[in-house]
Amino acid sequence: MKIDAHHHLWDLSAVTYPWLMEKGITRFFGDPASIQRDYLLPEFRADAEAVGVGASVHIQVGAADPWAEAQWVQSVAEQFPDWPLVQVAFCDLTARDLDEHLDRLQTLPSVRGVRQIIGRAPGEDASTGTNALLKDPAFLAGLQQLGNRGLSFDLQLLPELMEQAADILAQALETQIALCHAGSPHDRTPQGLQSWADNLTALSSLPQVNCKLSGLGMFDHNWSADSVAPIISTCLSQFGADRCMFGSNFPVDSLTSTYGEVVSRYQDLIPSSNQDGVFHGTSKRFYRI
């Protein structure tokens, strides 16, 4: 059974997503018009089951009210008990009342960890200021608190921030880390990929960091197995199959490919001896599915 370690769901009548519903704005990952609608588990599940996926991890996705989103995902998990669904919720690790937020999240049985995005894309990061989290002592303290509670952290950032992030993570070795989207290699030139690979070593050298092979279509809307082969190869070389996991990033990556295409491209690139780890073992262990 394959596990999808990175996807989203949304019910627009239950939870508000300001970024999703902005009309006429093209984002770095493409024009969101086709996904500005409900995307619920039965639709996701139909695509996933068709290629052997039988469990998944829901990742928070910018809700106006993150607690409402976490509660809604919990309700979905309860509504479909035959589909193993766990979640990574949002929490501001710099909040003064962090303990209260984490206490509340841990009342939800499906919660396995937290994501607070550090970097999305160069232009967007310049306006949001999320990169500044790495300089905030409260962020490190929050990361350490996650480890104390047995919660993981999903790390989304750009290659330019990897060395700085590694310095922080080295002080929170008890906190298990999932690097989203292979570290977002946004510059796909040979020079850009080499710089990404060099920076990636700062994270792969930390034993608690795992790598998601996901979201590779966000910065290359015409991606193919050949175009991402160097990325997959580098991740497997640096992390090993026992620290890499597959994620579809659906429905965001539905803007650039079908679910079946995402899975088949990864299967073509990942050696058969590594596929059990990438498609099942790592995510099962990491997210306790």
Rank of each mutant, 00 (worst) to 15 (best):
H181K: 14
P66W: 15
A241T: 14
I59H: 10
N131D: 08
L255Q: 04
P18D: 01
Q60V: 09
L200D: 06
P81W: 04
T94M: 01
G119R: 04
G62D: 12
R265F: 02
T94Y: 00
T201P: 13
S204V: 02
D99Y: 07
D226E: 14
G150I: 00
L236E: 03
C235N: 13
L213H: 10
S283A: 14
F90C: 13
V57A: 10
S233P: 08
S283Y: 11
M1S: 11
E69P: 12
L41D: 11
G142A: 11
L102C: 04
A132F: 09
V228T: 11
L255R: 02
I3Y: 14
L255W: 00
Q267G: 02
A95H: 04
Q145P: 10
L216A: 07
N249Q: 12
V88P: 07
Q194I: 04
T201H: 11
L151W: 03
Y287R: 00
A14L: 11
E174T: 00
W223M: 03
A63Q: 09
C244V: 07
G62K: 03
S214H: 03
D220E: 03
M21E: 03
E174V: 00
G147F: 03
G142H: 10
F28L: 04
L157A: 13
K284H: 13
C211Y: 06
V111W: 13
E163R: 15
G150H: 03
D167E: 15
I177N: 00
C180P: 06
P81Q: 10
F139Q: 09
M1K: 01
Q144R: 00
M245L: 05
P207K: 11
A64K: 08
Q79V: 00
H7R: 06
A170R: 14
L12I: 04
D187Q: 12
Y259V: 15
Q145R: 02
D103K: 02
H186N: 08
D65S: 13
H6D: 13
L140P: 07
S13C: 08
D187W: 10
T282D: 05
G30Q: 01
I117M: 14
V86D: 15
S237L: 08
T175D: 01
F139N: 09
Q164W: 15
G281P: 08
A50K: 04
Y17F: 12
Q106H: 05
D99W: 05
D276W: 05
S34A: 14
T258E: 15
E49Y: 06
L193Y: 04
A202H: 13
E49M: 03
H181L: 05
T128K: 15
T128W: 15
L193W: 02
T258C: 01
M1F: 12
G150A: 07
L143D: 04
F29K: 10
Q116I: 11
F80C: 00
R112M: 09
P66C: 11
H58A: 13
I35W: 12
Q164R: 12
I25D: 05
T201D: 01
N131L: 12
W223D: 00
T130K: 12
R45F: 09
V111F: 09
D154S: 12
S237G: 06
